[in-house]
């Protein structure tokens, strides 16, 4: 089933793209992340130009985050106020991200930058999660009670001024780290085509001490908007959003996510985290491999960068 992508200007196998979306959707339903960090590299491996992969990835992240956030909204595990503050930062961050994106594209260093960011972030986040989940599993095996609670602890984040109360998250915290976190993730979203869930979730849990049950819903909520903003700005400035490709990915993704969520209920939290960590590390290694191994062709063609 060949499908012509009007923006990427190439034919792809529609079934492969649907399955790709489905597989990523399954994983994102399983782990409660948007799946952007998987879809963009997958599209790049499938020879979609990186600029289009990034912008279209952001577009498909909206759909999966939307359906995830709706579920959390129904379960009342969504902090709108926290999400909104994160969003204000996020919009600011992704505006900067998009300027940097088109600048790098004109320099011909976009692919490098995207790969480096992926390797650095996925490597770090995946590595940390791997260590954490392996430790938890080992402790459980030796009989010690697993505990992630460190609620009583306070560190420098909690001493900053401009405090604000977030009732749903039972938090009283300065808006500065929240805004900075939102901005950082918005920036990454624009450049990497990701919602940033895989960074947002650990950051909210470990840095801001948001209760875990509220984290995923809130993160998904703010990702909808950051990804929407990124998509619109990419479409307006770079014309790199391919709706045909995005629609195929979304259809696969939304369906896959439901099965993923069901499968996720059969696994324990630590096991899920371990699997996610392995997946994240694998993607990072794959990208690092491309960066350090001599490419088959050292030459590449690009359109004249207009900045």
């Amino acid at each position: 089933m060949n499908i012509y992508l009007p923006i990427a200007e190439m034919s792809v196998n529609g079934l492969v793209v649907l399955l790709m979306g489905g597989a990523v959707g399954f994983l994102s339903g399983l782990f409660g992340v948007g799946g952007g960090f998987l879809i963009t590299p997958l599209l790049i491996f499938y020879n979609i130009p990186p600029a289009i992969a990034v912008a279209t990835g952001a577009n498909q992240v909206i759909a999966s985050s939307m359906s995830g956030a709706l579920a959390h909204f129904r379960r009342r595990t969504l902090d709108f106020k926290l999400g909104f503050v994160l969003l204000v930062g996020g919009i600011f961050g992704s505006s900067i991200g998009i300027v940097v994106f088109s600048w790098l594209r004109s320099l011909g260093q976009l692919d490098l930058f995207i790969s480096l960011l992926y390797v650095a972030f996925l490597g770090t986040v995946g590595g940390l999660m791997l260590v954490e989940s392996v430790n938890t599993l080992r402790k459980q095996r030796s009989g010690a009670p697993a505990s992630l609670k460190r609620a009583g602890q306070h560190h420098w984040v909690h001493r900053l001024p401009l405090k604000m109360r977030f009732r749903a998250s039972k938090l009283f915290v300065s808006v500065i780290p929240v805004l900075v976190l939102g901005a950082g993730i918005g920036f990454l979203a624009a450049i990497m085509g990701v919602g940033g869930g895989f960074i947002m979730v650990p950051a909210l849990i470990y840095l801001l001490k948001v209760p875990t049950n509220v984290v995923i819903g809130t993160s998904l909520f703010q990702i909808i908007f950051t990804a929407a903003f990124t998509t619109i700005v990419h479409a307006a400035t770079n014309q790199t959003v391919d709706v045909v490709l995005a629609l195929l990915l979304m259809l696969g993704g939304v369906a896959g996510a439901q099965y993923g969520a069901r499968a996720g209920q059969k696994l324990r939290g630590e096991q899920l985290r371990l699997l996610l960590a392995l997946l994240v590390v694998a993607v990072a290694l794959r990208l690092a491999f491309d960066l350090f191994v001599q490419p088959a062709d050292i030459y590449s063609l690009g359109p004249l960068g207009e900045f």
């Binding site: 909206i62 709706l70 959003v241 709706v243 996510a257």
Partner: peptide, 18 residues
């Protein structure tokens, strides 16, 4: 407008999927 349409499409797809 195209960008806004792409976003709307994604939101509707996500919602319908749900």
């Amino acid at each position: 407008l195209y960008g806004i349409f792409a976003v709307a499409l994604a939101i509707v797809t996500g919602w319908l999927g749900r």
